[in-house]
Design a protein around this nucleic acid. Structure first.
Lengths: 218, 218
DNA sequence: GACCAATGTGAACGGTCGTTCAGGGGCGGC
DNA sequence: GCCGCCCCTGAACGACCGTTCACATTGGTC
């Protein structure tokens, strides 16, 4: 993610995904993800993205109204998919808060290990969107945090969680943010094939989360 | 941190820090921190920074060789101070790994609550520096991670920590990264005056860290 | 008062950016 | 064969960027 020129791919035409010609709009999305993740939205030019998928600048505007809209499009779709997966994981985990928390964390971590590029862009480049465009993404983030807060609350009510009390009170939002921060930023340093694989990472993080909230041993 | 124009300060001359005229170079540093944190390095122009401290573009180059060097300067100094504080906190905590871990986390969290702006810039804007400039900052980050790994290792040896085992093995680097991610990104959402104050945040995070690593109750 | 070094000004330079647009090729439907 | 539509090209436009530079202005030293 330096300011310098994009690393030119060895080949002659486009970059990756040579197997099938991929409709232009999908090729643009994929190239944009890659470029934004590697070098950051503001320094990636429209020319860079389009060259990376074998087209020229002007063609972008047959598919997106602007560079801003392109970023918004790819972040929004990623974020929506994340929210959906989290909800599904929790709902499939039954009524036990410990199982729900573990399922949530496992899903969240696996996704952030597997789709590092998408996660990186969705989390890091949000700030470049203007205020109107960013509001529904923030809503989705709050929703995800509140899933977690809900699990914690029900766990406390049922007596299976015992999170730290600070001066006699708890701050479940702060705890939820702490757990999310931990899981989210895996995408900034995790490299597949070193040490733990995705499933093991998920297990580790789920275990840490359960310990943090003071889940009673089974 | 939108792409749009910088929020103009209400006043007529400069922005904040009107109390003392502050030497130019310090005023530039302060303005750069603020601007970079609010809007991000690539979209903040030299003209923005200098206007924010009541000077014009050209004057920057009497103090820094380039915009890049300015960023490098402020990140490096912040990072060095962070490393120093962490080392000091641990060394003052005595030989007990639990006390060391708690002291480390408390110091780290307090700093990231108090100096949100500096932490934000140091953590988020690193990627804009070219490869040569960034290497010593990465070294410092690794050093901080390794302080944590060292505490974990000695805690396990002394039998006071029992971190999760995954398939019979432990990954202390991953655990250290998880703890650091959690603490680092407080600076992205913490707002003073809401809910917990800095000291309470430090207590909460220290408690979570101790639980995560399976520290034995005293 | 003459000199000097440090510091600030603002026009100017060369470059790059996002976006627009006139033009062209390919292709299904008639 | 011709039309209309979609998609693409690449030159062009206006704006803005980091940096430089000739030129003030200041304040201290002899």
């Amino acid at each position: 993610m330096t300011k310098r020129k994009p690393a030119k791919s060895g080949g002659s035409t486009s970059m990756a995904s040579e197997r099938e010609p991929l409709p232009s709009i999908e090729a643009i999305r994929a190239a944009a993800f890659q470029q934004f993740a590697e070098r950051g939205y503001p320094v990636v030019t429209v020319r860079d993205i389009m060259k990376a998928c074998g087209l020229t600048q002007g063609a972008l505007y047959n598919h997106f109204k602007s560079k801003d809209e392109l970023l918004h499009d790819i972040i929004t779709s990623t974020q929506a998919e994340l929210e959906r997966q989290c909800l599904q994981a929790v709902s499939e985990a039954g009524a036990d808060p410990s199982a729900q928390l573990a399922a949530f964390v496992r899903t969240y971590v696996m996704r952030h290990c597997r789709l590092r590029v998408e996660a990186l862009v969705a989390n890091r480049e949000i700030g470049w969107l203007d205020q109107e465009r960013v509001s529904d993404i923030r809503r989705s983030r709050r929703a995800i945090r509140d899933i977690l807060v809900g699990i914690l609350t029900s766990g406390i009510e049922k007596g299976v969680f015992d999170p730290p009390k600070i001066d006699g009170k708890r701050d479940l939002k702060a705890m939820a943010m702490a757990l999310l921060d931990q899981c989210t930023h895996i995408s900034m340093w995790y490299i597949p094939g070193r040490q733990l694989d995705e499933a093991q990472m998920a297990t580790l993080y789920a275990e840490m989360a359960l310990r943090s909230v003071g889940a009673t041993e089974k």
